[in-house]
Design a binder for these strands. Structure first.
Lengths: 342, 342
DNA sequence: TGACTCCGCTAAATGCATTTAGCAACACCC
DNA sequence: GGGTGTTGCTAAATGCATTTAGCGGAGTCA
């Protein structure tokens, strides 16, 4: 608590009986100026004794590096959707001794510009632009050649980006059902015309559906029903599935496009006096926290958010490579799938 | 994108035909050196023309201020529990042009020290220590007199802190049930002996329960059952309530100590062929996202996380006052409460 | 012995904004 | 005219680590 004035490099040098130059070189592991083992010894012990910590402001004034990164996101930082994303970023950053400034824009261009300026003013070493929903981001031009990585997003102006491997994920989800023996009675819940036409939502969801259809095609299976839903929320899932079960008695499995739809589906199934998975199997996507709360546990293809966040740090520090990086979506097996009743 | 070299104060001064001193004074709105309106005009237009942005590293080298804050948390940044907390902080910070470095420690002392060092190295203007669960934090001593605020936490070493007003919140929850006419058939789900003895968990939960008991006492009401549960998760809520409904037929309302317990309770109620709120009313705490997904919507006393986060910024910038700040917990009325069956 | 190369280390410049001390010019007063 | 203020502005110092240029002395070579 005592407000000791900062220990500076000069202090260390004095104690070590060396010049600041020498101490700086040693502390930074520079080998260019061949300093004696003795000098190293002296510098290091002096620094340790005084508890010296370099003033980063002074350092970055010369080096224009700060060991700080900016994470600029629409809503990512503060929505349950993408806690994993930020956790991955934070974890990986702290492992390499970097600090991350989190800036939220709510997707508003004005705030985006503000955020970029704030980051640039502080000379961050790189900027990660993230989105809660995988989508194409428009990033305002800014006058700097800082490394940029798109996390769970794409952009026309910057190409290095990280996305979940939705297509493979889609295949996994369909395969779980197919492998369990469902063939005819599967309903697809949440697919959306507009998405498949590329009109709305993200390219990634289109890939998810593409993967699903691929897997179905391979097994020569067809959906009994495809229920288009625009809003992927529990309420919509409930209504859709409730109505569906009313009309069709041949449904044996539900492939929901996200966990919230599945959540609603569970309630609808229960309200019909049916049970998961004995009467109806359910598989979905995301691995929301929800999925583990449900009874029985929901089998779902998870979004690899944490891994994606870590990858972002790797890329930003290793100099962005301009490529697309797809992260594998893990299949989380719980208890919502069983063979069809027969 | 072009990597123009930075515009410096000297550049602006040159264009304006003034000294850097003058321009600095003007741009910072200092009035001490009475500069002419003309000089102001010249400095301002020159700065605007060049798009001048001060180099914060240089500035903070002199002023030891950075317009940056650190948010050091155990898990807060990345758990759904406290998204509101960080959102509030971020929102309020950006309104006053400050940037927040988010540092996670997972509650590990070693990482806590690391985080504090990282923050101190970067000369943050203040540190907010936050916890996902209101609890007492041990904060390692650090050699600096920076403003510190505890967010959703308390600490022996620093006194300015922000907590939800749990006692009032507890009263609200009980009152909802009491007002609806429940008097005899209320079960308290999740109370915990250890908590009330101050042995475990946080002081705040003790206050929550104290508030509840107060409200009950005022109306001369008593709980029919008090089910102690250690782990406040859906699964435990399910088991406890399921067993409870098995034994007792006189339960008309459940006062759950958090939404996740209530979530489990809903399922147990449903599995008993009963319904909310016709047969059993349910009230709980937190206003988890969950609460709105349930059918019918869950009436709950919300944690004012967002407001708390904003308050943290106010306090840290307005110089911490050493006091306890209690934020009101809002009652979120949905549809899980009705008068007892009769 | 003179010319040259290594070694081990240091002086001084640098990056940039802020701040302290103070200067030149003019007005005012007795 | 000498003394005292005020106005409007600037020179120079400052904060601190990094980096460039370079200095003495020892060793090497011919």
């Amino acid at each position: 608590m005592a407000d000791t004035k900062r220990v500076t490099l000069a202090d260390v040098a004095r104690l070590a009986g060396l010049s600041p130059t020498a101490v700086s070189q040693i502390l930074n592991g520079r080998t260019d100026a061949r300093l004696s083992a003795e000098a190293h010894e002296k510098a290091l012990t002096a620094a340790a004794k005084l508890g010296y910590r370099p003033n980063m402001a002074a350092r970055s004034l010369r080096t224009a590096k700060t060991s700080s990164l900016a994470l600029i996101s629409d809503l990512v930082a503060t929505t349950r959707f993408a806690n994993g994303l930020i956790r991955g970023v934070l974890e990986a950053a702290q492992r390499v001794q970097h600090v991350v400034m989190v800036l939220e824009t709510g997707g508003l261009p004005a705030r985006e510009i503000q955020a970029i300026d704030a980051a640039l003013d502080r000379e961050v070493d790189g900027i990660i632009f993230a989105s809660a929903r995988s989508r194409e981001l428009y990033i305002p031009d800014f006058p700097s050649a800082k490394p940029v990585v798109l996390l769970n997003a794409t952009s026309l102006s910057h190409s290095t980006h990280i996305l979940p491997d939705e297509q493979a994920g889609g295949r996994k989800a369909a395969d779980v059902l197919l492998d369990a023996g469902h063939h005819r009675g599967i309903a697809l819940i949440g697919h959306n015309e507009d998405v498949e036409q590329g009109t709305f939502r993200s390219e990634t969801i289109a890939r998810r559906i593409r993967g699903i259809r691929e897997a179905m095609a391979v097994r020569k299976a067809r959906f009994t029903v495809e229920a288009s839903i625009w809003e992927w929320e529990p309420e919509a899932g409930y209504r859709t599935v409730f109505a569906l079960l009313e009309q069709r008695k041949d449904i044996t499995a539900l492939l929901c496009l996200n966990d919230r739809l599945a959540f609603g589906a569970y309630q609808a199934i229960s309200d019909h006096g049916l049970s998961v998975p004995a009467d109806i199997s359910v598989v979905s996507f995301d691995n929301d926290e929800l999925a583990s709360y449900l009874r029985p546990g929901l089998t779902t293809v998870g979004l690899p958010h944490e891994r994606m966040g870590e990858k972002a740090i790797e890329l930003i520090l290793g100099k962005p490579d301009g490529l697309e990086h797809l992260m594998e979506m893990p299949l989380i097996l719980r208890n919502s799938v069983a063979p069809p009743a027969a």
